[in-house]
């Protein structure tokens, strides 16, 4: 339990720094921005109390917003994703619920399950974020293009992170 808290705290800090200092500067043609930090909410254990997921989402959003001086933008999106996560987990839960001590990752849940889970949440996050950012529907399709392209790139990064975790945990 304590180990998990420390592990997640470190990954929180690393993700916020990586997003603030590296990925915010990645702009493919000023169009695609990957938002890797969502992976923090995706990877929280199944047993995490729901209210805690929401609060952590809120804190994560504030931390990210502090880097971009857009207080509220990422915060609302992360809170939204934390909310959706609860219902999505309910929807895709295996028969008899989640096994004890399993985590939402490729290793424990399988590739198909994780791909579906990650894609839905990342897409929801990006949809929310980009439309709140533009705050208008006049450029609906332009924004939608940005959402889809960015979702794709975030997903690739998320899967890469999974790949790293996969290796390290099979060793130990």
């Amino acid at each position: 339990m304590i180990r998990d808290v420390i592990k997640y705290s470190i990954s929180f800090i690393l993700l916020v720094l990586a997003q603030g200092l590296v990925f915010n500067n990645v702009e493919f043609g000023g169009y695609i921005v990957p938002f890797l930090y969502v992976v923090f909410i995706l990877s929280l254990p199944f047993e995490t109390p729901n209210w805690m997921v929401l609060v952590l989402g809120f804190v994560l959003g504030v931390a990210i917003d502090t880097f971009t001086s857009t207080l509220g933008m990422h915060t609302s999106a992360t809170v939204f994703v934390a909310f959706c996560r609860y219902y999505l987990l309910k929807m895709v839960s295996p028969r008899g619920g989640y096994e004890f001590n399993t985590k939402p990752n490729v290793q424990d849940m399988g590739l198909t399950w994780y791909l579906f889970y990650a894609t839905v949440l990342i897409l929801l996050h990006h949809l929310f974020l980009f439309y709140v950012e533009s705050f208008k529907l006049t450029q609906f399709f332009y924004t939608l293009g940005r959402v889809l392209a960015s979702t794709f790139f975030t997903l690739i990064l998320v899967m890469l992170v999974q790949l790293f975790n996969y290796k390290s945990s099979t060793k130990s």
Binding site: L54, V55, G57, F58, G61, V62, D65, T66, F67, T68, S69, T70, L71, G72, M73, T75, S76, V79, F80, A82, F83, V132
Partner: peptide, 26 residues
Amino acid sequence: FVFLLFISFVLLVQNNNYQNSRVFNS
């Protein structure tokens, strides 16, 4: 959820002028 979302929207609307957010900006 509604409470936190409400807070973040309040923050969003109040702080979309960069200069107003003194503490939480870059």
